[in-house]
Nucleic acid binder design. Structure first.
Lengths: 144, 144
DNA sequence: TAAAAGAGGCATTTGAGGTGCATCTTTTGA
DNA sequence: TCAAAAGATGCACCTCAAATGCCTCTTTTA
């Protein structure tokens, strides 16, 4: 019942980039969050494929937001990385439950999911980002 | 991102019982849903421990609802079986994310979870139950 | 006292996700 | 033109929670 680490890394990367305009390296992001570079790289690839970020290869390359932090919704990122948030198979897949036609559960969980996503979709990336200064300050504290 | 089968079985068992007053055997429930008796038995035990159903051992024993279908909320059952519905560790556990103090994500996902549970808590078991006739009808159809 | 029925524990399997590594491709600049 | 930087990609293994099945124990009734 929780988001995968991939989604977590993707969101963190977006937050990092949104708080620090310009181009940054995957290595830099990974070190900032103390995560393996490989994991960040995989989240980054998907983010690039889905158009959230732009990545540039080669010397001086790196990644940067491809869209404004205001236009990216947290819910959209979660959906792209998690697929459905369906709580039960019967919400998204046909023919799973023996009593399906007579069971109101399907509708109830679909509605629960809808309410959750509706809210997450209403939250733009920009809303969860704090100025880079605050992030930096905390990291320095943490390192001491 | 979905409920465990245990939770699924628990909900189905409750629906079965709510639609058919009186005492029923675990074996009967298992056969109705075409699930292994063992799995149902385990969900049943937890349901009994948490006071949703009453179980009676021995000859002529079985299980039955211990509370009214109106007083049992789907959300409560889900919480009891799934623990937290937190989407991210940082929502329910301290000290997971490096940037936690500067990250608005924690609050956002907590709110998303709250909205989902608020809805699920508002749905009573009685609302997702159809008369036994409907269930029976479908099963007969399915068996042909 | 035997049979019914739930309680409980254990051992195994399984699959998704996490993790690390090796290699390829692109790009730049000396 | 070539070496180094940096992202892209695929592969293999690991890990852990959930699922699964089985066996035995305990309670209850006729």
């Amino acid at each position: 019942m929780r988001l995968s680490l991939q989604t977590d890394y993707a969101l963190r990367t977006l937050i990092y980039l949104a708080g620090r305009p310009g181009r940054h390296q995957v290595r830099e992001v990974a070190e900032f969050f103390r995560i393996s570079k490989d994991h960040v790289a995989k989240a980054v690839r998907r983010l690039a494929q889905q158009g959230y970020i732009r990545s540039v290869r080669g010397v001086g390359g790196g990644i940067e937001l491809a869209r404004s932090a205001e236009s990216i919704s947290i819910g959209q990122v979660v959906e792209d990385f998690e697929g459905s948030l369906a709580l039960l198979d019967c919400v998204s897949i046909e023919g799973v439950c023996t009593i399906q036609p007579a069971c109101g559960l399907r509708h109830v969980f679909a509605e629960a999911e809808r309410r959750q996503l509706e809210y997450l979709n209403s939250v733009p990336l920009s809303q969860v980002v704090r100025p880079a200064g605050e992030l930096q300050e905390f990291v320095l504290l943490d390192l001491n």
